[in-house]
């Protein structure tokens, strides 16, 4: 009946629907229909071209098409595929194959990506962090403080006169820092676990530990540290760090989603190193802000570093220098930051 055009007829294997049976067969296009014939020349399928599912060919394997009734046809060699499904085949191939030109573009884009991410990602993440309501910072900070207070903090043993003096300095700093008065509070604790240290929690709690106060030799040293912690709160460093870290994990997960465990290890290490760098960036930001506040109050912005040197006196050169694995910049760099390069 149909005029058989041998050039447009392709031999291959015709697979049954709903069974593992197959037989030699042929397919051909007639108008915009695809027809399949079994070995005896009987037509088994007639389907519109648009309803035939053309799987992108797997390199080195026969190409395969599937008909809406569940039958499938496969054949070797690319020529038959192109001949039958000229335009459709082009679409499938365009999507799954790359010309040398596109390879070049792709490699260049991939090489540019790290730079785009390096500079663009922190800005994007900070914008996300800005959209997070401050009440979330508060909940996180309060919960962290409750955890720490029950586990590693003891009551402060400082004399109340000393505490009162520091509270006065804190109020002074808050006024100079443009932070809303209710947004931060100062608490005193003692901790054998953390030793000489001070923290800012995202809800605005600044925790001053006894051992650090004991090492301080002047009010300016204490003031510098308090100003640094207040800056962390004002700049919402905790939340920004959380958002940046979450985004990086998501990116690593998506890009290496199906990767081997080896790739995941490498990605985790890389993500860690990037997060250290963000942490150092925030520390530098807080140091700068601290120096600014201290100058406004007529205090010595460098005093804080002298206190830190006393805290890390056993650590020596490794605390002076910045490394890619440190959470804080080296003390030498920090001194340069607070002194404003003078």
């Amino acid at each position: 009946m149909e005029p058989s055009d041998p050039k447009k007829e392709i031999a291959g294997r015709l697979f049954d629907s709903g069974s593992s049976r197959f037989q030699p067969g042929t397919i051909r296009c007639l108008g915009d229909r695809v027809l399949a014939f079994d070995a005896d020349g009987n037509q088994t399928v007639s389907a519109p071209l648009g309803s035939v599912q053309i799987d992108p060919p797997v390199r080195g394997m026969p190409w395969r098409v599937r008909f809406p009734n569940g039958q499938a046809f496969e054949s070797n060699g690319p020529t038959g595929f192109d001949m039958l499904f000229g335009r459709e085949a082009g679409r499938v191939k365009r999507f799954h194959g790359l010309t040398p030109m596109r390879w070049t573009a792709l490699i260049l884009a991939s090489l540019a990506l790290p730079f785009v991410l390096w500079f663009g990602y922190p800005i994007a993440a900070d914008n996300v962090a800005r959209a997070v309501p401050v009440s979330l910072d508060r909940s996180i900070g309060q919960s962290t403080f409750r955890e720490l207070d029950g586990a590693v903090f003891d009551k402060s043993e400082l004399p109340s006169a000393r505490k009162a003096k520091m509270r006065a300095i804190f109020t002074e700093i808050l006024r100079a820092s443009d932070l809303a008065p209710g947004r931060a509070r100062l608490v005193f604790r003692k901790s054998d676990y953390f030793g000489a240290n001070a923290f800012a929690l995202p809800d605005g709690t600044v925790v001053m530990l006894d051992d650090l106060v004991a090492l301080a030799e002047s009010d300016d040293e204490i003031a510098g540290v308090l100003a640094h912690e207040v800056a962390h709160i004002r700049e919402r460093h905790s939340m920004r760090q959380v958002v940046r870290a979450a985004g990086i994990s998501v990116l690593a997960l998506l890009i290496l989603g199906d990767g081997s465990s080896f790739a995941e290890e490498i990605a985790a290490m890389g993500a860690g190193i990037v997060q250290f760098s963000y942490n150092r960036e925030f520390e530098t930001e807080a140091d700068l802000a601290s120096a600014q506040i201290m100058r406004k109050l007529g205090r010595d912005p460098n005093a804080m570093i002298a206190l830190l040197r006393r805290v890390y006196k056993d650590c020596g050169e490794s605390c002076e220098e910045t490394s890619i694995l440190s959470t804080h910049p080296g003390l030498r760099d920090r001194l340069e930051t607070v002194s404003g390069g003078e």
Binding site: L98, L106, S110
Partner: peptide, 15 residues
Amino acid sequence: LRTFLLAMVTLGIYD
């Protein structure tokens, strides 16, 4: 290589 690079430039979507 191709799928990895495409996944990178599409921020993982192509993966």
